[in-house]
Each structure stands twice: as C-alpha cells, then as structure tokens.
Simulated scan of single mutants.
Amino acid sequence: MAETGYGKLIRDGLWCNNQALVALLGLCPLLAVTNIAINGLGLGLATTLVLTLSNTTVSLIRNLVRPEVRLPVFVLVIASFVTAVELSMNAWFYELYKILGIFIPLIVTNCAIIGRAEAFASKNRLPKAIVDGLAMGIGFTLALVALGAMREIIGMGTIFSQADLMFGPAAAGLEISLGDDFQGMLLAILPPGAFLGLGLMIALKNIIDNRVTKAQAVKADASLPDAQPNAS
C-alpha cells in the first residue's frame, strides 16, 4: 500500500473524505442527537475517542490476527472501548449520558469506525493509524456540532445551551440567546430538520469544492508557458 502523508490524512479526515459529509457514514447518530450543539459535541468526542483507540489497537495487532477472523476481532476491540467510554460518561457526565441514551452503545455499529479499522488501521503503522483516527473523528465531530448549532439557532434561537452538562455549572454562561421573543422554527429541531440541515451542509461543501477546483484550474492554466511562436 502506498504511503500516505500526514497532511493528506488530516485533510481527508477534516474535509476531503469527511465521514459524515462525503462518505455519509454514521448518519443515524448524526441525525438523531444533533438538535443542539452540545449533544453533537458530546457524541462526537466519544466517537473520536473510540475511533482513535480502536485504530491504535488494530494497527498494533494487525500482524497477529488471521484474515478469516479480522472483522470479529475488530468489532470486539471497538465494543470494548465503547463499553469503557459508556461507563465513563455514566459516571462523570450522567445527564448528558441520559440524553444521548442508546446512541452511545450504538457507536459499536458505526460504519465509519469499522471502516477505518478495516481499510486503514489494519494496513498501516501505528503513527499513521493514530493520526487517521483523530482526523476522521474530529471531522465527524465538527459535522455533528455544525449541524447541531444550525438546528439549535433556527429552532430555538440559542447556541451552546445546556453546556453545563459537559463542562460543569460554570459553563452555563456560555449560552448565547437571540432573545426571549425569538420565534423559532419547530421544523429545525424535528427529525426532518436534521435531513434538511445535512443536505444544506453537503451542498455547501460541494459548492466550496467546485469553486476551489475551478480556481486551481484557472491558476494552472495561467502558469502554463505561452505557445511558441511559429517559425518565420
């Protein structure tokens, strides 16, 4: 397998191959818990932790696992880390844990995590596996937070409400409100709003990518040497 640079791994995870906006993996939790930004941040950080730890472990044991049993072994590794994360959230972030509910244990079945373990971590050395896990996890978290923030602002007129669930009572002051008389759009915080918001985010990414591609093409054309003059 051709070596992949760290810069490309980071770009792929954050933007070019974002698991939520490009690969369209892990959409069940993405759409279900992003009615506010803090919920998305909590689940995103939990997913990032599991993704990084599972990539690390799979990379370490990749030469010890027989090909016939690699997927069951990978799932067992992921399930072990998900259980540890779930118990930790239950102990230290209980209110947030109750809100996220079933979607924490469902991280085990997140196709993004299993896919990175099989497609990348099992074929690359430890440093690259760690970077890939972090980049993919952070990219997924950013998509969760962005969608949650969009729905929260449009639906409730607030941003970072219930921040104290993750950061403690002192973080209650982080909430920004558009005013008590703000008439929010109920559709934004209902399930259809999640689909509409995700569609808008994907469309925006595609527009940005197309403009960047066109700008690069124009720049490349401008850098070409002028045609040689015809011989007299």
Results as ranks from 00 to 15, higher is better:
Leu31Asn: 04
Ile207Phe: 12
Asn55Trp: 00
Leu174Ile: 01
Leu87Trp: 13
Ala231Gly: 12
Leu87Gln: 14
Asn39Asp: 08
Lys128Ile: 04
Ala84Cys: 15
Gly5Tyr: 01
Thr158Ser: 10
Asn63Leu: 02
Leu76Cys: 13
Cys28Ala: 15
Leu53Arg: 06
Asn18Trp: 05
Phe182Met: 09
Ala170Val: 12
Leu31Pro: 03
Gln162Arg: 10
Leu60Tyr: 12
Lys128Gly: 07
Ala143Gln: 01
Leu106Phe: 13
Glu68Ser: 14
Phe182His: 11
Ala135Met: 04
Val73Tyr: 05
Pro29Val: 02
Ile102Val: 15
Leu27Asn: 00
Gln216Ser: 14
Phe74Ser: 07
Met136Pro: 04
Thr141Arg: 01
Tyr94Glu: 11
Ala149Gln: 00
Gly139Asn: 06
Ser232Asp: 14
Leu196Gln: 04
Ala2Arg: 10
Asp132Lys: 01
Leu165Cys: 01
Leu147Thr: 03
Ser161Thr: 14
Pro225Ile: 09
Val58Cys: 00
Ala222Trp: 06
Pro67Lys: 02
Leu224Ile: 12
Leu204Trp: 07
Glu118Cys: 12
Gly42Met: 11
Asn55Arg: 00
Ala84Asn: 01
Met150Thr: 11
Met156Pro: 02
Ser161Tyr: 05
Ile202Glu: 08
Ile207Leu: 14
Thr213Asp: 14
Asn18Gly: 11
Ala143Lys: 02
Val218Gln: 11
Ser223Cys: 03
Gly173Val: 06
Glu3Phe: 13
Ile99Gly: 00
Ser122Ala: 15
Ala220Ile: 04
Ser80Asp: 04
Ala222Pro: 02
Pro192Glu: 13
Ser177Gly: 09
Met150Gly: 12
Gly179Val: 07
Leu76Ala: 15
Asn110Ile: 10
Phe81His: 09
Arg125Ile: 10
Glu175Lys: 10
Gly101Ile: 09
Cys28Glu: 14
Thr213Pro: 04
Gly148Gln: 03
Val85Pro: 05
Asn230Trp: 08
Ile159Phe: 15
Thr34Glu: 01
Leu49Val: 15
Ala117Gly: 15
Ala135Gln: 05
Val73Phe: 13
Ile107Tyr: 07
Ser59Met: 10
Leu24Val: 11
Lys219Met: 14
Leu49Gly: 07
Lys123Glu: 13
Gly44Ile: 01
Met150Lys: 04
Ala143Trp: 06
Ile208Phe: 12
Pro169Asp: 09
Gly115Ala: 10
Ala37Gly: 10
Leu134Cys: 08
Leu27Met: 08
Asn17Asp: 13
Ser223Trp: 09
Phe120Met: 03
Thr213Lys: 13
Phe74Asp: 03
Leu21Ile: 11
Gly197Ser: 10
Met150Ile: 13
Val65Ser: 10
Gln228Pro: 05
Leu144Met: 10
Gly101Gln: 10
Leu49His: 01
Arg70Asn: 07
Thr52Cys: 02
Leu174Tyr: 10
Phe120Val: 09
Ser122Tyr: 06
Phe81Cys: 09
Leu51Asn: 04
Ala217Cys: 10
Ser54Tyr: 06
Ile159Cys: 14
Leu31Arg: 05
Asn90Glu: 11
Pro29Gln: 08
Leu187Arg: 02
Ala163His: 07
Thr52His: 02
Leu41Pro: 05
Asp181Tyr: 11
Ile107Gln: 03
Ala112His: 04
Gly168Ala: 11
Ala220Asp: 11
Pro169Arg: 04
Lys98Pro: 02
Ala46Tyr: 06
Phe160Arg: 00
Leu14Arg: 07
Glu118Lys: 09
Gly173Gln: 00
Leu24Asn: 00
Leu41Ala: 05
Leu27Val: 08
Ile159Asp: 00
Thr56Ile: 08
